[in-house]
């Protein structure tokens, strides 16, 4: 198990390094920040000055070597836009995003588990059909559309939630709902499928032949086995919340990593882009470790071998 985990960790770190390198070069393809920050009609001299200050006039490979050297000390440079260390700019908002993601994911798993079990227990019945239809709709609705319609309906028409920003609990409703949309839709289907398979398995049948009550078969014998596919899909969906964070940042002006990243890209703030990608990537590596550990807890065949 430890060997497996460390092997996974090594490959994840290699992937993370690769992503940061790619982002370094891709970011610079967007053009020079000088034209963005200097007033219109600024002289070439001013541009050269700007580039010299920020080190953009060196050849790309020199910039890259300097970047790698700095990153080795966890120094991602300074944000031109925010005028503070890029890593601070990212880590100061990351907890907000993380909290939102954890809340959304926990609720998604809980809702999907209940709906999926209900659908599986009443397979092909009206309840199952309704849940299946609803979950497919959830998985298919574009989240940005849902977010905008949500704002229009709940905030503008009914006025029960603020249109944007982070204030009291009501300001959490739309961001959390937007992030939950796709995970709930997909996970409900996964839970349903996994539960149907588990309920039809030999061990559930033989437990039933020993006279164990239906509820015990569903929640103790089947659900624990169905947890395995649910965990892997939930992990995958949690990583996908990065996309959702951008939507939530843009539509709801949620102070999180989504807003910071979008601003950084629009402002060619390379240092923040790189730091942001690094932090998100690190988060996903840790998430995968968490998924592997959960898997081991849930399945003795992974743990004991």
């Amino acid at each position: 198990m430890l060997i497996f985990l460390s092997r996974r960790l090594v490959s994840s770190v290699i992937a993370l390094v690769g992503v940061v390198v790619v982002v370094f070069f891709l970011g610079r393809l967007t053009g020079s920040p000088a034209h963005l920050y200097l007033p219109q009609g600024a002289s070439q001299e001013m541009a050269d000055n700007f580039n010299r200050t920020h080190g953009f006039n060196d050849p790309l490979w020199q910039q890259f070597i300097r970047f790698v050297g700095d990153v080795a000390h966890l120094d991602f440079g300074t944000s031109i836009w925010q005028q503070r260390p890029a890593l601070t700019a990212v880590t100061s908002v990351f907890p907000q995003t993380l909290l939102l993601a954890v809340v959304a994911m926990t609720l998604s798993i809980a809702v999907a588990a209940v709906l999926g079990c209900l659908a599986a227990a009443r397979r092909f019945g009206p309840v199952d059909k309704l849940i299946t239809f609803g979950s497919l709709a959830c998985a298919s609705i574009p989240d940005f559309w849902f977010a905008l319609v949500g704002v229009l309906f709940l905030a503008v028409h009914l006025g029960v939630v603020p249109t944007s920003g982070q204030s009291d609990l009501s300001s959490w409703i739309l961001p959390v709902a937007t992030l939950m949309l796709a995970p709930v839709g997909v996970l409900t289907q996964v839970v349903r499928g996994a539960m149907i398979e588990a309920l039809g398995s030999g061990y559930v049948q033989s437990a039933r032949a020993r006279g164990l009550a239906h509820r015990r078969l569903v929640y103790r014998h089947a659900l624990r086995n169905a947890a395995l596919p649910i965990i892997s899909v939930a992990g995958d969906r949690a990583a996908g919340l990065v996309n959702g964070a951008v939507i939530v940042g843009t539509v709801f002006a949620w102070p999180g990593i989504g807003t910071v990243m979008v601003d950084a890209v629009l402002n060619r703030d390379f240092a923040v882009i790189q730091a942001g990608v690094f932090v998100i990537g690190l988060g996903i590596v840790l998430l995968n470790v968490l998924v592997d550990l959960t898997y081991a807890v849930a399945d003795p065949r992974v743990r004991v071998s």
Partner: peptide
Amino acid sequence: EARLNTVRGPGVSMVFQDSFDSLNPV
């Protein structure tokens, strides 16, 4: 089911063909 469960076990019990499938793996 509830009434059948009073018979299943102390009344009638069953051993299935596939022992691997009959035991809960977790």
